[in-house]
Design a protein around this nucleic acid. Structure first.
Lengths: 247, 247
DNA sequence: CGCTGGATTGACACCATTCAATGCCCGTGG
DNA sequence: CCACGGGCATTGAATGGTGTCAATCCAGCG
């Protein structure tokens, strides 16, 4: 079952609670956050390079990404984002966007003004720390991707990314050992620095090894241990609280 | 002339002022920061995966990097660090290291306790924002490296990295169009996801094109415009203040 | 029912790796 | 003073992992 869209508050809770513990005071403050929710279309660009946003977007459903295009027309996807993610939290402190934020699969997105977030942080400094952690984990994921793209074989690379997507989906309650919003093979290629053809071959290899199975846009993990081994996946870099870590 | 080691305060000033404007109050607070300075050896590892640091390190001279090793023994260097950099600022909020910090070239390093930094931030909230920007720019550089490694040719890749190193060195006053601490070809390879042999060929190509020249561990830019073009280098992602941007 | 987006497959080309050897600079020790 | 060794740069040859090109297939959809 494709997940429905939870409330803004629920989305933020789910994500932030993977990273810090919230007091009831803080939860109430989050519930009071003013936001504007909107349906986004498939492929819609939320933010472009050079934009100076005055609000942050919070993904409620669908699949978003951050991406950049290079001279030869190729694209690099730098992150995937699902329920609870704040792909442009950085715009709070860096005024001009150095990359795009786009929807790969249509879904609901909440927009929260910088002003409101700044007020929240002022009144609840621990929330500032929470967002800080969110940002730092973001950077840790970028580093993991660099290692992946720079130094692993295509086979390992794909396995590693799938492991990450599964863990991050499970952590916000989007299913165990399942990815509902599997990126297309083209998108996976653009995320991993590989061609679509080679992604296809590699995915088939992973299927032949009985590590994964796919049904349309949905992927199931058949052999979690095996997939982790193939991708040399160690979730330490995700810096999840101990209570949410695990198979 | 290889640059000498400035004071801790000077180093921090130089770096932070590329990113924010400091008030005299804030400068004074920085001057009072307690720190322990130490000479580090060539190749010395400052922090290992799994460590839980209680202090941050500030590079005063030499060349540091963040790196990670993968199963097949290969290394990925995720960033280079020079005068004024705080390679493990993240340890303020993420308790356990998910990568190494090591010295590639010996130099002086200052260690400042988390406690002292937290106090500084509490008393001068704008300093918290400054460190926040520092961290976010770090992440922006990771993204730029991902694009570089994932989607550019070896030739472009090397050129782009050299452009970045030149700009970041100049910005803290380490010379114009010159890199004093040029990484070895092996280190460049490990940073760019290329083999040492291919780095060698690519560097020679760049020399043959009259874009760069090398003399031992020092590199000079002969044709800045040309090198930028070769690397598709646009410094926007470094989010420098307008006053420090430029050739 | 034709169209479109995505997945799949085969053949072939090429960029980059690996292996292996050589050269160069420099610090060290006999 | 010179031989030696270590770290780094350089080069050639052979191999191979991925990319490119091109065609086919399939499912969903208007």
């Amino acid at each position: 079952m494709p997940p429905s869209s939870p409330s803004i508050q629920d989305a933020l809770f789910r994500k932030l609670e993977t990273v810090v513990n919230l007091t009831s005071e803080e939860r109430k403050a989050i519930e009071r956050l003013p936001a504007h929710v909107r349906n986004t279309g498939n492929g819609e660009t939320l933010l472009r390079e050079g934009d100076r946003p005055s609000q942050c977007c919070l993904i409620l459903s669908g699949l978003a990404c951050r991406q950049k295009f290079v001279g030869n027309g190729h694209r690099q996807i730098m992150s995937f984002h699902i329920l609870g993610d704040l792909p442009d939290l950085q715009s709070l402190y860096l005024d001009v966007m150095d990359h795009e934020v786009a929807m790969l699969r249509s879904g609901k997105v909440a927009f929260i003004s910088h002003v409101a977030i700044r007020e929240l942080i002022e009144q609840h400094p621990r929330m500032g720390a929470a967002f800080g952690r969110h940002t730092l984990i973001d950077a840790a994921i970028f580093r993991a991707w660099m290692v992946n793209i720079g130094r692993r074989s295509a086979h390992s690379r794909v396995a590693h990314l799938l492991c990450e997507l599964v863990v991050l989906a499970r952590v916000v309650g989007l299913g165990k050992k399942v990815i509902h919003h599997l990126p297309t093979q083209e998108e996976l290629g653009d995320a991993l620095g590989l061609s679509i053809v080679h992604i296809n071959r590699t995915m088939r290899h992973l299927r032949d090894e009985q590590l994964i199975a796919t049904e349309g846009r949905q992927l199931s993990i058949l052999d979690w241990k095996g997939l982790q081994r193939a991708g040399e996946f160690d979730p330490a870099y995700l810096h999840l609280k101990r209570t949410v870590v695990g198979g």
